[in-house]
Computed example of a mutant assay.
Amino acid sequence: MKKYSKILLIALLAVICFLGCKKLNKDKDLIVSESQEELFFGELPIAYSAVSHLAYLENLYDDNSYKFNLMSLPAGPDIVASLRGSGKETAEAGSIAVTPVVYLASAGYNPIVLATTITSNHRVRIFTTRSTKISENYENLKGKKIGVVLGTVGEIYLSRLLAKHSLSEKDVVRVNGKPAELKRLVLSGDIEAAVLWDPFITQAKKEYKEGIKIEKYQDRGQGEVLLDSTLYTLAFNIVTTKEKLRNNRDELVEMLEDLIKASELIKENKTGSQRKLEQWLNLEAGDLDDFMNTTNFEVYLNTSLMEEWIESEYTWLKGLKPEIVLPKDYSVFIDESLLKEIDETRVK
């Protein structure tokens, strides 16, 4: 009897050991997973984010040594706020134009442009209606309520448009808001025009036309989209801060490699890429035709040109805020070394 009891005890100990080891391995795997580096990336749900979001749709971020976390934020100032923050779930990097970069720098932070993903001089436009007569003469902007997302390309575009026609910010009523809110205000007639981009421009055209039919909106004449392509060249960029670059350099290099792959996918299959982006933005097939045909999709960094753009917008911002001190060196806001590490030919 003692012999059988001894055998049973040994068997029981073996089972306990097996289960314990299995749990230990499971816990070890969990610890490895929890200790994996993470990268939080701030992205806008707009057409400008085509390259970074296509990389997400194509699962290009999945095979990296870090965990990629996509943060969808409503407007450029929200990306800026996230880059300024520290701690859990603030962005280590984000995709923004030059204007938010300058706002970030002027606030005493240290933004760093790592690469440009798209460029175009057709991407900032105004939605209005025929009744405003703005399309007849831009001088008719005077006295109008104009929706604009302050701290973004919309602000500098409007400023340059006004200056070109001998007007200033004091000649209009600027209404600040998120793009979706500005779209709602211009459709309802609470403001006369709004400086927007896709998908909001495309949505505004359709919703205004359909809204008139069902008497949701007052008929104020045909909806119009206005563009002066001489005013602004959009450069949408991958941006981090000096501190976050120091702490996340390897992860950011991997991310740039994924973005390059995504830009090449767009070139190889523009039609397929366009449809995926339209579906993401809840647009119909063909809605992004103009965007795809007037935008350059290339992950690169033109250092001298980027310095010129930053200096130009810094000077503009100082005109609005005289207390701002202009930097002596604009190259401190650019780091070409990450892209050079991947492919030197992408740095110009």
Rank of each mutant, 00 (worst) to 15 (best):
A285M: 11
D287V: 05
K144A: 13
N69W: 02
N110K: 14
E284F: 04
L196E: 03
K318H: 09
K28I: 09
I31D: 11
D190W: 03
E251N: 15
Y61W: 09
V153Q: 02
E37K: 14
D343H: 08
K318S: 04
L283K: 03
G20H: 07
R123F: 07
D190C: 02
K2D: 15
N237R: 04
S95G: 07
D287A: 13
I112C: 01
S135P: 02
K340M: 12
L30R: 14
G319L: 08
Y56H: 12
N69R: 12
L187Q: 03
E89D: 15
N248R: 12
L54C: 07
V101T: 09
I201G: 01
L252M: 13
T230G: 04
I212N: 08
V15R: 07
L19P: 04
T128A: 10
L226R: 05
A193Q: 06
G286I: 09
V253D: 02
P111A: 02
E34L: 15
I324A: 05
L39E: 03
K2S: 14
S35M: 15
N110T: 10
D29R: 14
V32S: 11
L281C: 06
G42V: 00
K328C: 01
E298N: 13
I266L: 12
A262H: 05
V148Q: 01
L54A: 02
K261M: 11
E344V: 12
D287G: 10
L187I: 08
T132P: 12
R249C: 06
K209D: 10
Y138K: 07
G221R: 10
S82T: 09
I134M: 06
G76A: 15
A204E: 04
N25L: 13
E264V: 09
A47N: 06
G177L: 06
N140S: 06
S229M: 03
S35F: 09
T117L: 09
R160W: 02
R246Q: 14
W280K: 07
K170F: 08
V195M: 04
A194Y: 02
N282G: 08
C17A: 13
N269R: 09
V347F: 08
E43R: 09
M255Y: 03
E139K: 15
L70S: 12
L150E: 05
Q274F: 04
L73S: 03
L13E: 11
S52T: 10
E341Y: 12
T99Y: 00
V172M: 08
V98N: 00
